Structures are given as C-alpha cells and as structure tokens.
Amino acid sequence: MDEASGTLLLAHHNLDWDNFPALAAGLLDEWELELLLQDSGADRHSWQLGFEGTRIWLHFEHYSGCWLSADDEEGRATLRWLSQRYKD
C-alpha cells in the first residue's frame, strides 16, 4: 500500500496484457469485488469496482504494472483494509 498516492500495488509473475482479464477476474472472485465498469485502451485496462458500497479502480498498464486506486478517502480506507486482509 502506497499511502502517498493512495494506491495498492499488485504483482503477479505471469501478468501481461493478454492474460490480464482472466487474472483480474480471479482477483475479483477471491477478494469479493464487483465489476461495475470495464474499459480498455491502447495500453491500459481500467476497471471500476465495488466493494461493500465503496468504489475503487483496478488499473493495468503494460509497462507500469497493476494497481488499485481510489477517488476518495472512503475508497482509500477500503484499499488499506484490503491490503491488510490479503497481505500475503
């Protein structure tokens, strides 16, 4: 969890552009996140997610990696909670 930017960095050894949707779907299932909106561009996936009434974002860029972010303090609190719950 990067408190300064309000993001939760995620890592997976096989993550790439082509398998992101399948790996992300597995993450959503495991973490009990709801997919609200899905957008993909030339080099970026951005998915809006819901978790117990809070909205957060899942991002993937081929060269930058994968992370969760939040638009407000409620979302950041959710990210902090998720980072502790799924630390390993």
Rank of each mutant, 00 (worst) to 15 (best):
D29S: 13
K87P: 00
L82E: 08
F60I: 02
L15M: 10
E34R: 05
R55F: 10
D39Q: 14
N14C: 02
L23K: 12
A22Y: 08
N14E: 13
R44S: 00
L36S: 08
L35M: 12
L27S: 04
M1S: 11
D2N: 15
W17M: 05
A22M: 08
H13Q: 10
G65N: 10
T78Y: 01
N14G: 09
S83T: 05
L36N: 08
L10V: 02
Y63F: 07
W81A: 11
H62T: 14
A77E: 14
G75I: 13
S46K: 13
A25G: 11
D16I: 01
E73R: 09
S40F: 05
D88H: 10
R85L: 06
T7L: 02
E61A: 13
G41E: 03
A24S: 08
Q38Y: 14
D43V: 13
L9I: 15
R80Q: 09
H45P: 07
A24F: 02
S83A: 03
D2V: 04
N14D: 14
E3Q: 12
S64Y: 05
L37D: 06
G6N: 01
F20K: 10
H12C: 02
A11F: 08
W31E: 03
L8W: 15
D72E: 03
G41H: 09
L28G: 01
L10Q: 00
S46Y: 06
L27M: 15
D88G: 09
S46I: 04
S64N: 04
L36A: 11
A4L: 09
A11E: 07
W81E: 06
G6Q: 06
R55T: 13
G75A: 13
S46F: 04
Q48H: 10
Q38F: 10
L37T: 03
F51K: 14
H62G: 03
R55V: 10
C66M: 11
D2Q: 15
L27R: 12
W57F: 12
A24H: 04
L27H: 08
E61S: 08
H13F: 03
P21W: 05
M1A: 13
L15C: 02
D43H: 13
L58N: 11
W81N: 02
K87S: 12
R76C: 09
M1G: 07
D88Y: 04
E73G: 04
L28Y: 06
S5T: 04
E32I: 12
A77K: 15
L82A: 00
I56E: 04
E3F: 11
A22W: 14
E30G: 00
D43Q: 11
W47K: 01
W47N: 09
E3D: 13
A70F: 05
D71M: 05
F60Y: 15
M1Y: 01
H12G: 03
A24R: 08
D72V: 00
S40E: 15
L27F: 06
W31L: 00
H13K: 12
R85H: 06
G50I: 06
S69V: 06
E61K: 15
G41R: 05
L33D: 00
G6V: 00
D16R: 14
A70S: 05
L27E: 03
L28H: 09
L68T: 11
A70C: 03
N19S: 06
F20C: 06
A42P: 00
R76N: 04
E52N: 14
K87H: 07
G65K: 11
P21H: 05
R76T: 07
D29E: 13
L33N: 00
M1Q: 02
L10Y: 00
N19Y: 11
